Simulated assay, not measured.
Amino acid sequence: MPAALSLLQQRHSVPSRQLGEPAPDEATLQMLLEAAIRVPDHGKLVPFRLIRLEGTAKLRFGERLAAIAIRNSPEMSEAKQEKERLRYTFAPLVMVVVARLHADSKVPEIEQKLCAGNVAYNILLGAHALGYGGQWLTGWAAYDREAAAILGLAEHEHVVGFVHLGTPQIEVPDRDRPALADLLGTWTP
């Protein structure tokens, strides 16, 4: 099997809690991200951007999100509050992939969002190819406008995902995958 297809066959997510140091160093991250942004882009709109969360910024971001969550659900248990605070602290690096939607474009918004989603997936694939692990997560914060404001997003920008990156700390078993025969059909006129 060609190496590129073997890479696709072996790719899997590593839970963010199981991602530790090291994350890609600066030169490796630059190389990874330059490759990740090479996505199909109808209209050459570049409908995406990236935000890096690392170090203490991950905890500060989680604390601000926890404050929103607690305000919205004052009955939230202490355990859930702590989970909200620490959600972004496990992996050494979190890349926020942002869709930048161009409402005035003839390119449908769904295509623009898919373009940004391809960036997130390319980060996962590239990280795997380089020997790192990753997990693409969303959660409520990806869809919350107050969370978007914390990140400095404009009204036309939306979080596509939080891609957690680091070195796998455990061997992650692959999950069951669907059978291609159950998914593939052939259209005939």
Rank of each mutant, 00 (worst) to 15 (best):
A142M: 04
L137Y: 02
R100P: 10
R52P: 08
L137E: 09
R175T: 05
L86M: 15
A149D: 12
Q81D: 12
P178M: 01
L101W: 04
G62A: 10
G133L: 05
K80A: 15
F61K: 02
A99C: 11
L101K: 00
V107N: 12
K83L: 14
I170H: 09
L114M: 15
G126N: 09
W140I: 11
L53K: 00
V94P: 01
Q81N: 14
T89I: 13
A142T: 08
A129K: 00
A116I: 11
T56H: 13
L101G: 03
Q135G: 06
P173V: 08
L93A: 06
L153F: 08
R87W: 14
W136F: 04
I70C: 10
I123C: 04
D144P: 08
M95H: 00
V172K: 02
Y88N: 04
P92G: 13
V107M: 11
A127Q: 01
E78V: 06
A99W: 03
E78L: 09
G117L: 09
P168Q: 07
N122V: 10
R64K: 04
H128A: 12
G55F: 05
R175A: 13
A91V: 10
M95F: 00
V159C: 09
G126Q: 06
V160L: 08
G152T: 03
V160I: 09
L151M: 06
L50D: 10
E157I: 00
G152C: 08
Q169V: 12
I68D: 09
I170Q: 13
E157F: 01
G131A: 09
F90D: 12
T56M: 14
R71L: 13
L151N: 07
A79K: 15
N118S: 15
W136D: 05
L86T: 15
P178E: 04
K58L: 11
I70W: 06
R177E: 15
R52H: 07
I150T: 03
L151H: 04
H102E: 04
L101C: 05
V163S: 10
G55K: 01
R85Y: 13
G134C: 06
A91N: 05
V160Q: 07
M95K: 01
V94Y: 03
R60Q: 15
A103D: 14
K113N: 12
Q81I: 10
D174K: 11
D144Y: 03
A99R: 01
